[in-house]
């Protein structure tokens, strides 16, 4: 099996896996970063959203070999040092999560938006977040939390 070198949350990691293994399984089952979730495996739900060089990507749809050396992978574990990213604080303030399973992906998706646009309109937020499903129906609070976090950034 080939060895892949990855940069995850500013740390260099080596994994020994078959080519074609998705980044999702590499992060979760090989590197033990469990905050990134498996929801659909086909890029339809956004539970596995991570950042690659700051862009939101679906880890379930990326074979490990597509993430070449030097690309910077950020997972929910690496979003902030103490869980105190403005979005994470807003998520608590607005009591967003219910079951919580999709929320890492939601936060990572939202963080990528605020990184580029710290004053998004309603339409921009809704469009940007449209690929992330939440079965518990926390969308209203996700929206409100993003709006209030955008004021903190």
């Amino acid at each position: 099996m080939p060895i892949f070198s990855l940069k995850v949350n500013s740390k260099s990691e080596e994994v020994n896996v078959d080519s074609g293994t998705t980044l999702l399984w590499v992060l979760r089952e090989h590197l033990g970063l469990m905050g990134t979730k498996y929801g659909c495996g086909v890029g339809q739900c956004g539970s596995c959203t991570i950042h690659i060089n700051g862009n939101p990507m679906r880890a379930c749809a990326l074979p490990v070999e597509a993430v070449s050396e030097g690309q910077s992978i950020t997972t929910i574990e690496g979003l902030s040092k103490k869980g105190d990213h403005p979005l994470q604080k807003a998520w608590v303030e607005h009591q967003v999560p219910q079951c919580g399973y999709c929320q890492s992906g939601q936060i990572m998706q939202a963080a990528a938006l605020l990184e580029k646009n710290n004053n998004p309109t309603r339409e921009e937020i809704l469009n940007h977040m449209n690929g992330n499903l939440c079965r518990c129906g926390t969308y209203m609070r996700i929206f409100n939390a993003i709006e209030s976090a955008s004021k903190e950034i």
Partner: peptide
Amino acid sequence: IGRVDVPEKTTGEAVFAIDVK
């Protein structure tokens, strides 16, 4: 009074069965 499970559900630390090794 907030829910006790909310903070760990914003950091990826909440443990679902699928996360157990």
